[in-house]
Design a protein around this nucleic acid. Structure first.
Lengths: 255, 255
DNA sequence: CCATCTTTGTGCACGCGTTCACAAAGACAT
DNA sequence: ATGTCTTTGTGAACGCGTGCACAAAGATGG
């Protein structure tokens, strides 16, 4: 999962809990699959299984949207697809810019799911002049100098940052100044943004580290509760994690 | 952020809350940056600011690891880096395989942060015979047929799935059968795994949809609480979200 | 050695999210 | 029309996570 949001204490925006909002896309995906198989209705039990959640949770989630089910029958698939899409704001077109066209940026540009859900890649932006004009996923890369103009001309309000960490805050500031109010950040940095701007973060490194933690737990509980046998305190430790300046490593980028 | 975990009700593994574990990598990154600037100690206030969290939360998080601070002074940077690294299991080497070498898989393979934190890309695997042998990020791609052998020969316990959604479950099953017990899934599917296997999911599409929700909230509260004016219920709606079979769209993949 | 000042570690309260369990609602058969 | 059966919608209880606020710990200076 991408982690974290910034600001907005616990914005139960109109009564829809944040946790529920995070699951709506999951339901939507499952429902879309059912829709394609022309399944007319689903029970909360079936849909919950498809989405990988508890059926009680699903029903409570839907209850925040309204009473869209029929007791004894279940939910009308098409109707629910529409309601969730509308609730998520997916019935309108969202122009998006991707800044930082490295390996990851290119991967994102090629992402099929982008276009298929109301999102449209309005522009690809990179600071490397050598990239300017070169088409990626059929879209010519534009230079960072054009950033403000692109945002304004296209009415972009969602930006994706796929730059190295060192450039992320600067790019973020420019995006925000130009009018972007939602940011998806792939760079391994904590972005600071003014009130009213949403930031979501996707961090591969963190996900792997969390997995490693659980993995360590599983394979042998070595050093049961070792508070005693620690190496010299202040002296520079000799173990790993010392190589690259992690703070400057691109999220997922070329070298 | 990447979302979700599977199984394990709320595994407070040895008393360390899941929420805390998820923040440890954040602290570690901030600490590493300080370490590189040769800063000897930090207060909870400073470190919290750098990591983008509340200082009380940070102190409580650290309290789960032990009493590693000095009152009136703060925390010893090097010592804390070591303790967190150890807690996360980053002092050992974790061989990782990446399955599905499309745009995203390639991006992941090139990810610098991989190697710099105890993770080592042991192999790249793809089902396309045309890719077999071709080097990506300096590592030759191997064919899916070799999957089981690769896992066993290298003692791999962490697998990354970057395949199209349609192949994800099958790949997952093979990984698990071969001995993998932690999976980072980039494919937009709910993976079902046996007890004891951890799955974390990173889903770009979901992140964007969550952003869209908040974005919609911000720009004008149109249809204030519209339960009334809905389109024909069961009839196929005419709005967007109808194009691609979303369920089969690769996470972030070539066409 | 004592006073002061800084900063940690944590007890406590609060709120969100999850889950259970059941009453109400409606479909369907007779 | 009535009864049965399925499935929703939700009240209530519980547990986790967060943040406040403060006492204890220790550094530092006189």
């Amino acid at each position: 999962m991408a982690t974290g949001r910034t600001h907005r204490p616990a914005t139960r925006s109109r009564g829809i809990p944040e946790a529920t909002v995070a699951r709506l896309p999951l339901y939507l995906r499952a429902l879309t699959a059912l829709s394609e198989r022309s399944v007319p209705t689903v029970s909360s039990e079936e849909l919950a299984a498809a989405a990988g959640v508890n059926s009680a949770k699903l029903r409570k989630d839907f209850s925040y949207l309204g009473s869209y089910g029929t007791r004894g029958v279940g939910y009308d698939v098409e109707y629910l697809v529409y309601q969730i899409s509308r609730e998520l704001g997916l019935t309108q077109d969202w122009p998006v810019v991707i800044v930082g066209i490295g390996n990851l940026g290119a991967a994102l540009a090629n992402y099929g799911g982008f276009a298929s859900r109301g999102f449209r890649v309005a522009a690809l932006i990179d600071a490397d002049p050598g990239l300017t004009g070169k088409p990626v996923a059929g879209i010519p890369v534009q230079h960072t100098d054009e950033l403000e103009k692109i945002i304004k001309d296209n009415g972009v309000s969602i930006g994706v940052i796929a730059t190295p960490a060192g450039a992320a805050q600067q790019v973020c500031d420019r995006l925000v100044a130009a009018g972007v109010t939602s940011i998806l950040n792939f760079a391994p940095t904590v972005l600071s943004v003014p009130e009213g701007v949403d930031v979501r973060k996707v961090d591969l490194s963190i996900e792997l580290q969390i997995l490693a933690f659980h993995e360590q737990r599983k394979s042998g509980e070595e050093t049961p509760a070792g508070d005693g046998a620690v190496p010299a305190a202040v002296t520079p430790r000799d173990d790993s994690a010392d190589q690259g300046p992690d703070g400057d490593v691109p999220a997922v980028m070329p070298a």
